[in-house]
Amino acid sequence: MAFLQSEPRNRIELSGQEMLAISHAINNEFAPRFTKHNTVCAGSMTFSVQELLAISQEISREYAPRTAENSTRLVLLPVDPHRLHAYWHLAENSLNPSPKLAEEDQLTLRIFKQADRPLPETANVAEQAPHWFDIPIDKAQSRQEVIVPADTGFADAKFSAAIGESRGEQGFTVLAYSNSTDIPSPRLYRDDAGLSGALAQFIMPAMSASSPRGKAAPVEQNKDSR
């Protein structure tokens, strides 16, 4: 029987909930999908989801990042007006191998308020640097937070560092020099900014140490107190 000749039939009665359930079922099963049958097409290649995952896991396992490298390296980063962060990697052959000296040597991080001229490449630079201070380092360490002395002319300066072996009176053998870095000015909303009354009125009260910073979402902060 041709389609047009078919007998008209009464439409099936469906409740709103039934229609909704059918709509959901169709949407869930037949909505357009980027992945078809759990596969992803890229150009002429097709990947199953499992294959992508296997490749990802294999690479993560076999090529996990490591800090170890052949060269010796020291990096200095600014944290805030009072702190620097140093990290380093010392190649295995860079430390003094002499057992006699090893006991006396103290691995040391030397922080320089950067000199106007470049640091020389030779050892025993301490005397030539205008300002510096030392932090003794344990040989197992690879990073150090550095508190910048507040009262010795170190504020608002450019810094660099050297890591080396200190032998008391006998000097300092440099193993690596760092980059140079600036720390921010330690002034916090200086009082001498010369702001007029209106400007100060809107800026200074909100400048207390407890002022909110943008990134901390208020709702997030309030979670526990609610």
Binding site: V75, D80, H85, Y87, R143, P184, K215
Partner: peptide, 27 residues
């Protein structure tokens, strides 16, 4: 130099919980 993070500088992105990241990405 400044940020809008807690304390106003870099300490939220560089502290004892996450400082291990930087040697790796710099390398």
């Amino acid at each position: 130099a400044s940020s809008w993070g807690e304390h106003g500088y870099s300490s939220y992105w560089l502290n004892e919980s996450n400082d291990w990241i930087y040697p790796l990405i710099h390398k």
